[in-house]
Amino acid sequence: MNIFRLLGDLSHLASILILLQKIQSTRSCRGISFKTQALYATVFITRYLDLFYDWVSLYNFVMKIFFIASSCYVLYLMKYKYRPTHDPSIDTFRVEYLLGPCAVLALLFHYRFTLPELLWSFSIFLESVAILPQLFMLQRTGEAETITTHYLAALGAYRALYIPNWIYRWFTEDMVDPIAVTAGIVQTALYLDFFYVYFTKVLQGQKFELPA
């Protein structure tokens, strides 16, 4: 564990707490893509199957349980408790265009040809693009509530912080995980546009609005 990974994980944790806070305080899931949230639940469940047969650390265990439980809880909130506040007509990204290619990539790039390893690879590739339905929705509506942009910024910061973590591990442990690194760089790059607007507008006290 190094400082970059710890800050990254804490940022990930914060993003989920901000998302829950947004839903509870506005009593609405307006502006949140159900598809992206469903993809994240899929990512965590397929990646953390090793909970059942591999012990890493208490930290690792608790975080994995938290990410699985919170992502399922968000789905429950969106699907049942605040269902009327979710508008599927603007959440129109075709997730099959993500799931199919990620399954193919997992078959091509993995560390071992076993079911858990294939699912792990799949989850890494899927995580890198899981934000796309959300960004697509943002692009369509052209604006976002400030708290939603804080959620996205914390989520983007999480993967961005994993990059210095990998560089650090490469030097100190001679460890390189090419699948995670490649997918992580792609994932971070997807946020660049968003970060630009976030830093130039939201953090200056303006509303998040995309140019028409």
Binding site: D54, N60, Y162, R169, D174
Partner: peptide, 10 residues
């Protein structure tokens, strides 16, 4: 180890 699986990462 190049190409190692970083299982301790989330």
């Amino acid at each position: 180890s190049q190409g190692a699986h970083s299982k301790d990462e989330l």
